[in-house]
Design a protein around this nucleic acid. Structure first.
Length: 425
RNA sequence: GCGGUCGUGGUGAAGUGGUUAACACAUCAGAUUGUGGCUCUGACACUCGAGGGUUCGAUUCCCUUCGAUCGCCCCA
């Protein structure tokens, strides 16, 4: 039988787990600074939640979702991204009625996409994301972009750049869409089969096609930027000016089309040229989604957010490694020694000291000392038959190698008095 | 979904169509019978990923399969 972990999943072992805790803590701190509060939504939702939000024609929905029927014959999908669930929860819990806007949420946790794994891409991966709902303003857009940049800077990530574009408002998008249809329809037979469906459902995505990317029709296709309404155009210009005022470097890329259908107005990505990312250069993607809350049955409510893959982040982040160590290791000999050792260990632990003890009766002191070293221990407490008989243990400081006899009732006091004395180096 | 590369002990990693499968690290034991980090000695691969084929003989060659990994695509 095959008990190996599933393709595209990873086990995070304690050493790696420490790094995760560090990164998570940095993220929570920055979220707090920007006044985003944590929201935790379910890891699975009704399939329709994602179909509706991201668009049925998107690659993510059409071929990457973990979808199955549960025992009640409901179609369930493991979340492939975070925004849909947050917006669903926002509407369901009537958060739009809260007096304070924007409503600012952050989340982190696992997402699931059925893809072929490679460097920087897993089937179960973790995202950190934020969503700010209830306000449409260039200053909020830029606040969100600035937060993303702050996160990458705080983690010491270099070689990042911000790419932005605008998709315009409803009207801009509608006239652009019409232009695209007029442009492609006469030549539809020259395009791939996917593009034929896209023409019907979402012509914008034709520009995204990998099969037909070199077709001259692509280069001559109508551009988003030429179909912006005056309002959309000035909104975007304001965003750019605000980015300038914060000295955030960015480039405008009019071909930036995000993979999910819910975006409008400002869209952006943070990309990195760091080679440790392999073929994946996109660290972070986000944008505005003004129609989404209404899609889910809420009132007309604007929103903006971003998300990034934490695994990718960790591949390029500078992570401070904290040296961990034990306050005491209890070396034991014999059954009586082990029994007394357990008493002492428990007593010290209750008092907040980190303690490990030897549980194997046959283990030599020599090999127990190896455990002492591996655990970066401060004090060794030796508990054998002699100590049991004398009701006093031997305590040895690993750093200066001095050893002395300490009565059972004085162990805690002795350790606490001497702990501050040395560095754990 | 499509391609490339790889799969030998706990780990890293040599190697050959023939049977004792190097080496290093780690681990355990002993020298040192209750005091480590050095040294020395010893122990440690009964599916060389799995299945099939070629062969007198396969870990080595061929096919299949599974897994890992990288890339295309797409995204985070």
């Amino acid at each position: 039988m095959n008990y190996q972990k599933q393709k595209g999943t990873v086990d995070i072992l304690p050493e790696e787990g420490k790094k995760w805790q560090y990164v998570e803590q940095v993220l929570r701190t920055i979220a707090g600074v920007y006044n985003f509060k944590e929201i935790r939504t379910p890891m699975f939702e009704a399939t329709e939640v994602f179909n509706r939000a991201a668009g049925e024609t998107s690659d993510m929905v059409s071929k990457e979702m973990y979808t199955f029927n549960d025992k009640g014959e409901r179609s369930i999908t493991l979340r492939p991204e975070g925004t849909a669930g947050v917006v669903r929860a926002y509407v369901e819990n009537k958060q739009f009625a809260l007096p304070e806007t924007p409503n600012k949420y952050y989340y982190m946790g696992p997402m699931f996409r059925y893809e072929r794994p490679q460097k920087g891409r897993q089937r179960q991966f973790n995202q950190f994301g934020v969503e700010a709902l209830g306000v449409e303003s260039p200053t909020l857009d830029v606040e969100v972009i600035a937060m993303a940049v702050t996160i990458f800077e705080s983690l010491g990530i270099k070689d990042v750049s911000v790419v932005i574009n605008t998709l315009g408002d409803q009207m801009s998008r509608a006239s652009h869409k019409e232009a695209l249809i007029n442009h492609f329809k006469p030549h539809i037979d020259e395009l791939c089969s996917d593009c034929k469906t896209r023409l019907e459902k979402n012509p914008l995505r034709i520009l995204d096609c990998k099969v037909d990317r070199n077709n001259p029709l692509m280069a001559s296709a109508p551009k988003t930027i030429d179909y912006l309404t005056d309002e959309a155009k000035s909104y975007f210009e304001e965003v750019c000016e605000l980015l300038d005022s914060l000295e955030i470097k960015y480039v405008v890329d009019s071909n930036l089309v995000r993979g999910l259908d819910y975006y409008s107005h400002t869209v952006f990505e943070v990309i990195s040229s760091d080679e440790r990312l392999g073929a994946q250069s996109t660290l972070c993607g986000g944008g505005r989604y003004n129609g989404l809350v209404k899609e889910f049955g809420g009132p007309e409510t604007p929103g903006i957010g971003f998300a990034f893959g934490m695994e990718r982040l960790m591949m390029v982040a500078d992570i401070e490694e904290e040296v961990e160590g034990l306050d005491a290791y209890i070396m034991t000999a014999g059954k009586d020694g082990a029994n007394l050792g357990l008493q002492i260990a428990t007593m010290l632990r209750v008092n907040g000291l980190s303690v490990e003890m030897n549980h194997q009766e046959t283990r030599s002191f020599k090999s127990q000392f190896k455990s002492v070293d591996r655990n970066n221990t401060h004090f060794v407490i030796i508990v054998g038959q002699d100590e049991v008989d004398k009701e006093a243990v031997q305590i040895k400081c690993v750093h200066d190698k001095e050893q002395q006899e300490v009565k059972l009732e004085n162990i805690l006091e002795f350790i606490e008095n001497h702990l501050g004395g040395h560095d754990h180096e």
